[in-house]
């Protein structure tokens, strides 16, 4: 089993509005895209078959939305810790993640109230913003 990123969890009072999350740099490879698609049981050809993806007008295979959601979830708990509870994920989808690109995820704490913090995040690749959005996290008091 891979070593956990962190085993402790940020407390609500330890977090301030404006705090920045640790960046996540993700080299996008065909393996990243295909393994994400299959782990989410998404067998649409544009996520694993390059020739068919190109035939359908795409540049290459591209990451499916379920996988993007997975990276958003990982990004926030890598920073906040394993016992941070994800309440809500609200994302806007943009530039596709193609193999050979790199996505850099950055975020900051936007709001804080009643034990819940709202993180604002962007996953940016060479074409623009792949994903932008917010995540609500409940942190231990």
């Amino acid at each position: 089993m891979r070593e956990p990123t962190r085993t402790t969890t940020l407390r609500y009072h330890q977090v301030a509005i404006g705090d920045e999350l640790s960046d996540l740099t993700l080299p996008i490879t065909a393996t990243v895209i295909v393994s994400g698609a299959i782990a989410s049981r998404d067998y649409q050809d544009v996520h694993h078959d390059r020739d068919l993806a190109v035939e359908r007008g795409s540049e290459d295979i591209f990451m499916n939305i379920l996988t993007s959601n997975g990276y958003v979830g990982r990004f926030v708990t890598d920073w906040a810790g394993p016992e941070a509870l994800i309440q809500r994920v609200d994302i806007r989808l943009g530039a596709p993640n193609y193999p050979g690109d790199t996505m850099v995820m950055t975020g900051r704490v936007k709001e804080k109230s009643d034990g819940i913090i709202t993180v604002e995040l962007v996953g940016k690749n060479g074409l623009g913003n792949h994903v932008t959005g917010t995540v609500d996290l409940r942190l231990p008091q």
Partner: peptide
């Protein structure tokens, strides 16, 4: 399936895969 998913997105949060934790 959880393990496949965590491997795919390299999510190492132990509440998903480490029963003791």
């Amino acid at each position: 399936m959880i393990r496949h998913w965590c491997d795919a997105v390299d999510d190492r949060n132990p509440v998903y895969t480490d029963p003791e934790f």
